Simulated scan of single mutants.
Amino acid sequence: MIAALALLTACGLPRSGPSKKEIYSGAVEHGGNAAIIYVNEHVTRTANFSPSYGFSQSFRNSSAIGADEIRPGDVLGLSIWENVDDGLLTSLGTSSTQLQEIQVDSGGYIFVPYAGRIQASGNTPDELRQIITEKLSDQTPDPQVTVARVAGDGATVSVMGKVVSQGVFPIERPTRTLSAMLAKAGGVAIEPEISVITVKRGSETGKVWLTDLYSSPTNDIALRPGDIILVEEDQRSFTALGALGGQTRVPLGNEMISAVEAIAMVGGLSSNLADPTGVFIMRDEPPSVASKVLGKQVNGTQRIAYVLDLTRPNGLFLARDFLIRDEDTVYVTEAPYVQWQKTIGAITGGLNSANTVSNLTDGNN
């Protein structure tokens, strides 16, 4: 009997993953590359570093651009009135000339007949009107000029991803902020609770939850020409494995999820298999957090397996306070008796099968 048990144990019975003893054998002190840390109140406070989304000060300090400021790429419309019957620009019998769809070139200039090449960018339509009027005054008496900014193509942002209407949109007076531009694009096309907004500006990138965008005015940043706005579904998740009610990848959303909640989300501990003293949260810790947890200065990312013993008096409280992070693995080991039970079952099942075959053989004889 003992020989059969040893043989089955050596061969390896089906199980949901490594045992608690096997995980401990991979600890740093045994030549492995993972630190095994029992969770206590100090560890909970130290390890509950939760990276958050948000915009840097450079994003938040950017002032709204002047909606009327002319930029390269803008399209202008000019109307010029002259107080003479046969003016510079007007034909006989007419008093005004319409110059429509004059595009500001890449250098910021436009060309107006008899006024020459004029720098339009950096001026408002009214300032440009005064410049053109002064240029023409030397050649025609008391000219009257109006300037209209027909389109804002020179100050645009790109809106992409999970929005109702993707496209390139001009920054105009009603759409100078992030929330207003999202509304211009029809709003997000996914659940607001899982929507993440990314803004890329040159080499800098910032992210914010859609819900935080509307709850905090400081996140509603002013847009700048060339900004790229991307709306996507949050991809943060943790993986649940071992003696649990389910083994799966679970989205985090924008909630703060504790170890207890993470276990509950996959059906809780398996009452027939789980070892409540062997709840592991495995993660790669940044050096700033790992140094505090380990009590010594370390360089580079560290692999840490946090151990929760739910049978301790404060075990459930610690699990309730320990926060789960993106890419965590929540693993629950099987109780030691489970393997023993499987071994006994395999032996007695094998013996019963052998007796059945023997009985069948005897009956045939």
Rank of each mutant, 00 (worst) to 15 (best):
L213P: 11
S215K: 07
S215D: 11
S215N: 03
S216L: 01
P217H: 01
P217A: 08
P217Y: 06
T218A: 03
N219V: 04
D220A: 01
I221P: 00
A222I: 00
A222F: 04
L223W: 14
P225Y: 10
D227F: 06
I228H: 10
I228D: 12
L230S: 11
V231E: 12
E233Q: 15
D234E: 12
D234L: 03
D234H: 04
Q235H: 05
S237D: 12
S237Q: 14
S237R: 04
F238N: 09
T239G: 02
A240I: 06
A240K: 00
L241R: 01
L241W: 02
A243S: 13
A243P: 14
A243W: 00
Q247V: 07
Q247S: 11
T248V: 09
T248Y: 08
R249H: 02
R249M: 08
V250Q: 13
P251K: 08
L252K: 07
N254R: 13
M256G: 15
S258D: 10
S258H: 00
A259S: 15
A259Q: 14
E261Q: 12
E261F: 07
A262Y: 08
A262N: 11
A262C: 05
I263E: 12
I263K: 04
I263A: 13
A264L: 11
A264H: 09
M265W: 07
V266D: 15
G268S: 00
G268R: 02
L269S: 03
S270N: 10
S271I: 02
S271K: 09
S271P: 15
N272I: 01
A274L: 11
A274H: 09
D275F: 12
D275P: 11
P276A: 04
V279P: 11
F280I: 12
R283L: 08
R283I: 05
D284W: 13
P287G: 07
S288D: 13
V289K: 03
A290W: 00
K292L: 03
V293K: 05
V293D: 09
V293W: 04
L294G: 12
L294P: 06
G295V: 07
K296F: 12
Q297H: 00
V298D: 02
V298I: 10
N299Y: 14
N299H: 06
G300W: 01
R303F: 14
I304H: 06
A305D: 05
A305N: 15
A305G: 10
Y306S: 12
V307E: 15
L308K: 04
T311L: 14
T311P: 14
T311A: 06
R312C: 08
P313R: 04
P313K: 01
L316T: 09
L316Y: 09
F317H: 13
L318V: 08
L318C: 14
A319S: 13
A319C: 13
R320M: 01
R320V: 00
L323Q: 05
L323W: 11
D326K: 07
E327M: 07
D328Y: 06
D328T: 03
V330T: 11
V330G: 04
Y331W: 09
V332Q: 06
T333Q: 04
E334P: 07
V338N: 07
